[in-house]
């Protein structure tokens, strides 16, 4: 609401949310519920550190002048990014989220002052980024001061029309899913976990762009539109 008209070619039009929702559903259909084509690896959490080494180098956003990648950012040689070693096509949703997260993180942060520390970056994620993408802030942020943050959103936007019933498939109680752990793939059913793999990647991408390597996992243990994301930081910003 407060950020309109900022940036030159930045925010252009708007589109109906339906479009995005339907696109996401199709993506989940294609990539969710099963290990994707190619290697049937369930990607391990370690991939998060190695994936996309070819992507933008982590930068702590200092100095004000940020490298922008306005054009060609998406289509720059499909071979070179996206599938880092091990990241591969194993978890398409997560790595697509990651890519989008990197790009959005950069766009949304380009006009603000540099970040002081990790907490500052996480706050940016919870407030500014969350507001841009999910139109509300994270409701609750907890940390153990040792690199683990838990972001709790009581009405996570992308779960607003998800139901806990059949969707959860055979793992009704165990809806926890790790960003890199591939969830519980293989049943050919869409799970809530699948719905959350994209946003997990998104969060990881934003943090990565801002200089933090982290592992993100999501959990919907409580009632449904509520959801919490656990961010374990592996390498802090300088």
């Amino acid at each position: 609401m407060e950020k309109q008209g900022q940036g030159q070619e930045g925010r252009r039009g708007e589109c109906a949310e339906t479009c995005f929702d339907l696109l996401l559903i199709e993506m989940i259909h294609l990539y969710g519920g099963r290990p994707t084509q190619g290697t049937t690896t369930t990607t391990t959490t370690t991939t998060t550190t190695t994936t996309n080494a070819t992507e933008a180098t982590p930068k702590a956003n200092g100095g004000g002048v940020q490298e922008r990648r306005p054009s060609g950012a998406q289509e720059r040689g499909p071979g070179e990014a996206g599938a880092g070693p091990g990241g591969g096509p194993g978890d398409g949703l997560e790595s697509m989220g990651f890519q989008v997260g990197c790009q959005l993180g950069e766009r949304y942060s380009k006009s603000r002052a540099s970040f002081d520390d990790t907490l500052d970056i996480v706050k940016f994620l919870c407030k500014d980024f969350w507001t841009e993408v999910f139109r509300k802030q994270v409701d609750n942020l907890k940390t153990n001061h040792r690199g683990v943050f838990v972001l709790y959103d009581s009405k996570f936007r992308w779960l607003r029309s998800a139901s806990a019933g059949k969707m959860m498939g055979d793992n009704a109680s165990a809806a926890a899913v790790g960003a890199g752990s591939g969830g519980q793939p293989g049943q050919g059913k869409t799970t809530v976990g699948d719905l959350l793999r994209f946003p997990c990647g998104l969060i990881r991408g934003v943090l990565f762009t801002l200089g933090i390597k982290a592992v993100v996992s999501a959990d919907v243990a409580s009632s449904l539109p509520a959801c919490s994301f656990t961010v374990k930081i592996q390498q802090q910003a300088k």
Binding site: R11, C19, L23, E75, Q99
Partner: peptide
Amino acid sequence: ERINSELFTLTYGALVRH
């Protein structure tokens, strides 16, 4: 509901790339 089309655009880009 309207959203900023950037999210949509970039997501589509990520999909095509994948």
